[in-house]
Write a protein that binds this DNA or RNA. Structure first.
Lengths: 111, 111
DNA sequence: TAGATAATTTCCTAAATAGGAAAATATCTA
DNA sequence: TAGATATTTTCCTATTTAGGAAATTATCTA
């Protein structure tokens, strides 16, 4: 949770997440949307991944990232629950986009 | 939104919000829950207030803060919407605790 | 009016963060 | 194997942030 909120406290990182809402992308594809050097983007991505907000999948020499929407939503809903109870219901069962765009998580995060 | 996420990226500040979930409190009451000097707490509160996440009401020499749950929830739901569509519905009409605990917002934030 | 109390502001230092350039790692392909 | 390409890591500097002590402001009360 601490890591997730720290990760979200950056405009470029939130923009990366927004780009990934369109589906999984390589680091290069993500970086193409920014006016920032690739190493900087790579480090932002690392922060998001370290917070558990991104899935990583390696294909050849490229690395494909996709959003861990469930983790993202669960963190925010859990945090919101004390302030607006209707968030609690959502913390439970949810159907999210992004999680299904990859070939059914078979441990890509370690590759 | 930028300010809100920056404000939330701090454990002491999220703890302050959690304390305020119990209802409006003075700075001193909030500070009593922390092992941190009052000026530091005061500054954290200022960050939250500047982000629009807290309402301020002055009564005598005390300053009473309460949570702006609608602003908090709206920010997070708006951010979440691209990733989990069900958040969109919540961005609209909502009944939140905290907003009603004060004598019906008559401009206390400027006082 | 002279303290006492509540909160904020100012000033300072230590630590964290962002970003780039250059180097390092992997992997692909001729 | 020798490049070429994709990504990450290392190293550096500039900026931001956190927190405390002391000073300041505002308000209460004897």
């Amino acid at each position: 949770m601490e890591k997730a909120f720290k990760a979200l406290a950056s405009t470029p990182r939130r923009r990366i997440l927004n780009h990934l809402a369109g589906g999984p992308m390589t680091v290069g594809e993500i970086a193409a949307n920014f006016d920032m050097a690739m190493p900087s983007i790579s480090k932002h991505i690392a922060v998001l991944h370290d917070a558990g907000l991104l899935h990583r999948q390696k294909r050849g020499q490229e690395v494909i990232y996709s959003i861990a929407a469930d983790k993202l939503a669960n963190n925010l809903y859990a945090f919101l629950t004390p302030f607006c109870p209707e968030a609690r219901a959502l913390s439970a069962e949810r159907k999210l986009p992004g999680s299904d765009d990859l070939p059914a998580q078979t441990g890509e995060d370690k590759a």
